[in-house]
Structures are given as structure tokens and as C-alpha cells.
């Protein structure tokens, strides 16, 4: 439906390449997280942040390479939905934590 269609063979090769890149990146990011824990170079807190950061990057890799959500016009709707979902979930989770922590603080 989008841009003038390339011939299906090239299209398929391109797709396989995206998957391969995604797989390699996912592998590297996962490995990196495990490595950071197994060969600790930084204090525990930094390591924890590092693992979280790697997980976030991994999510973006999954979306980009496996679910084909990019900045292109054709996937703009999907991208907006994902961003919206992220916003709502952050609001709900962060709000809950703040509320419960606040009550906890006052109960102490």
C-alpha cells in the first residue's frame, strides 16, 4: 500500500536482513546484561541501571526490527499507539508507587 513496491525477492531479502540484524543486536544486548552481572566492573547500583538501560534498548530493537515499527509514515499509527500506551502505563505504575509510598511514609 505504501511506496512503489520493490520486487518481492528484494523485499524478502531486505526483511531477512532486518531480522538478522535484530537477532544479533538482541543477542549482544542480552549477553551484555549477563556479562555486566557476571564480570562486575561497576558498583551494584550502576550495574542495575546498566541492565535496565540495556533492557530498554532491547525493547526498541524488538519494536524496530521484529515488529517493523519505525518512523516511516506507514507505521506512524502503530508508533503513536505504542507511545500512548507507554505514557499511560508510566502514569499508572508511577502514580501507584507514589501513592503507596506516600501512605507508607505517613504510617511510619
Amino acid at each position: 500500500m505504501t511506496a512503489p513496491q520493490a520486487d518481492p525477492r528484494r523485499e524478502k531479502r531486505r526483511e531477512i536482513r532486518t531480522y538478522a540484524i535484530g537477532y544479533a543486536l538482541a543477542l549482544a544486548l542480552t549477553g551484555g546484561a549477563f556479562a555486566a552481572v557476571h564480570w562486575p566492573r561497576f558498583p551494584a547500583r550502576t550495574t542495575l541501571g546498566l541492565v535496565f538501560g540495556l533492557a530498554l534498548v532491547q525493547m526498541i530493537v524488538h519494536l524496530r526490527c521484529f515488529l517493523h515499527v519505525s518512523l516511516r509514515r506507514s507505521s506512524r499509527d502503530d508508533l503513536l499507539l505504542i507511545l500512548f500506551s507507554t505514557l499511560i502505563i508510566i502514569l499508572m505504575v508511577a502514580g501507584t508507587i507514589v501513592i503507596i509510598a506516600n501512605l507508607h511514609g505517613r504510617m511510619m
Binding site: G95, I99, G105
Partner: peptide
Amino acid sequence: AVLSFTVWVHHFFAMGQSANL
């Protein structure tokens, strides 16, 4: 739609959280 997810505490203002919240 977005704001509706930012206001739920007003249903339990009197339940014991701090005034700032």
C-alpha cells in the same frame, strides 16, 4: 482521554495521603 489517567486520587482524597499529593 489522557488526563483521565492523571486524576484518580480525587476519589479518595480523605484516605490519608499527604496534602501535597
